[in-house]
Amino acid sequence: MQTLVRPEHFPALDSLQFQTPTPALIPSALRIVALGDSLVYGYGDPEGGGWVERLRRSWMDPSQPGHALYNLGIRGDGVNQVLQRLDGEFRNRGELKNRMPDRILLAVGLNDSARLGKSDGRNFTDFSTFSLALETLLDKAQDYCPVCFVGMVPTDPDKMPFLDCLYYSSLDQYRYKEATRIACDRRQIPYLDLFDLWLARGEAWWKRRLSSDGLHPNSLGYAAILDDVKTWGALPQFLA
């Protein structure tokens, strides 16, 4: 025989004690989109899937809700490609209706610095074109939400050319990354200068953290990037 539960069996609402969670107990999870090239995508790291993926996994413990991080890196992308993707990628990663992402993480510029066909060939993206597109990208991104930028790592010139046609060099990398750093600084966008940070640790150190192609970090390299990102002084404020 089925016993029916009637409304009178429930206590009156005014007799129940409700406790409002304090702000400290309410998780402030953010929706973050990571836009960029293979450094965002994580190519070269079959173990952890790259530093963005490693960071994403660290925020996936159900007992300690973390931020939602979307990896939107595409191998081979330059600044113009990321600029073209920005609006659509941002507007389609809100998770909930009418909710846009809370933060944008950018990492691009290495492919733009490459020289085509020979070591003194033209850059993949002309420097003046790169500078203009980069400033447009930063301005547009800032119109949406707070932004931070993770710079490129050094490449090994002894392993060039990449794919038998692309030549990367420290001189070109420095020029493009400095333009990026300065543009970010003007806009008060946090910039993590991995290029200078890695070079300061010595050639033997950073070369051990590159894949055999001399271009992409290996698993050890991506683990190092994750450590650099997590110990970056600007990160807590970016995630606040």
Rank of each mutant, 00 (worst) to 15 (best):
93 R>S: 15
113 S>E: 02
121 G>K: 03
131 S>L: 04
143 D>T: 10
131 S>Q: 15
158 D>W: 07
158 D>S: 10
144 Y>Q: 01
111 N>H: 09
138 L>R: 00
109 G>Q: 02
124 F>M: 14
146 P>A: 09
146 P>W: 02
141 A>C: 09
144 Y>R: 05
141 A>L: 08
118 K>I: 10
130 F>A: 00
150 V>H: 00
127 F>D: 04
114 A>N: 00
105 L>M: 13
105 L>V: 14
136 T>W: 00
119 S>Y: 01
127 F>Q: 09
147 V>A: 08
153 V>A: 09
147 V>Q: 02
91 R>V: 12
157 P>A: 10
130 F>T: 01
154 P>V: 14
106 L>W: 05
150 V>G: 03
139 D>G: 03
151 G>V: 05
90 F>Q: 01
126 D>K: 02
119 S>P: 10
149 F>T: 08
117 G>I: 13
133 A>L: 10
158 D>F: 05
157 P>Q: 12
112 D>Y: 00
159 K>T: 10
124 F>N: 13
112 D>T: 06
131 S>P: 06
120 D>Y: 08
108 V>W: 02
150 V>D: 01
140 K>S: 12
94 G>K: 03
97 K>H: 15
108 V>L: 04
121 G>S: 13
155 T>M: 06
161 P>D: 10
122 R>S: 07
162 F>S: 09
153 V>N: 03
160 M>N: 05
